[in-house]
Design a protein around this nucleic acid. Structure first.
Lengths: 135, 135
DNA sequence: TTTGGTGCAAAACCTTTGCATTAGG
DNA sequence: CCTAATGCAAAGGTTTTGCACCAAA
């Protein structure tokens, strides 16, 4: 640890960075870089696709957004709380609920330790169809 | 259901299909299509990259291989048992151990149901550094 | 001013598709 | 034979990189 996250990355408050962050906040669900780029364009605040990618990347490194991959390999980003958690994602509309459970956390650690694995880390995603989409 | 999987897909026993399956069996860890293609070439049993992709795809549909995505979006395939399970993967060497726990299974279902989600499905991957790589 | 940020165009990737050819059953 | 499977080349998609320009601090 102590790799210098936080102080190690001076961020300039550019119009583009703010726009991407605002968009992430207003969306509150997993969204692709391309989609964010398109929405920004529609909103009139044009940001280069390259910049969207670079911004999301730096946010991911700073742990300010979560990243998951769709089945076809597209990266999806979503603003999140900094603490550790997992997701319950609607397969239809993309609505996302953050979930967590101490039980599962300790299970993961226990399994890894039992097999002698170190430096553990895990991802859990639950997919389903949310009430709104089911009706 | 009755979407016709199983009887719906006549498979011919081609040299290429057998080669890919054998390679998957001998590897027993998550491997990319490109990697499999390269290894086959080294082994002298040349199989077109396209064919490797198509074979892996059909195997995935038939649930005979598991598929996960690396952080950079590459698909990784691995032969697996047909029953439901999850993975403990070594971040360094790719060694994989199948794990599962009724506790976690029911936790996932319970969480989803509590939020009214239907048609549930989940993925869990635990990453770490295995004993061999740690030393 | 100084240096990181931006954005275009082009490259790099993995993956899929079109189509003529081959070979399994 | 008949039709699925193969493989090349080309296209498709997302993501990255090179480089000149711009604008925060």
């Amino acid at each position: 640890m102590g790799t210098g996250e936080g102080a190690g990355t001076p961020q300039r408050n550019t119009r583009q960075r703010v726009a991407v962050l605002d968009m992430l906040d207003s969306l509150n669900q997993f969204t692709s870089a391309q989609d964010i780029h398109g929405r920004l364009r529609d909103n009139g605040s044009t940001v280069g696709l390259t910049t969207v990618y670079r911004t999301l990347q730096s946010l991911a490194e700073a742990r300010q957004v979560d990243v998951i991959r769709t089945d076809d390999g597209e990266a999806m980003y979503r603003r999140c709380t900094t603490e550790h958690h997992h997701h319950l994602v609607c397969r239809r509309c993309g609505r996302t609920i953050e979930v967590d459970s101490p039980t599962v956390e300790s299970w993961a650690e226990e399994v890894a330790k039992r097999h002698g694995f170190a430096d553990i880390n895990h991802t859990i995603e639950i997919y389903g169809v949310c009430p709104d989409c089911a009706s």
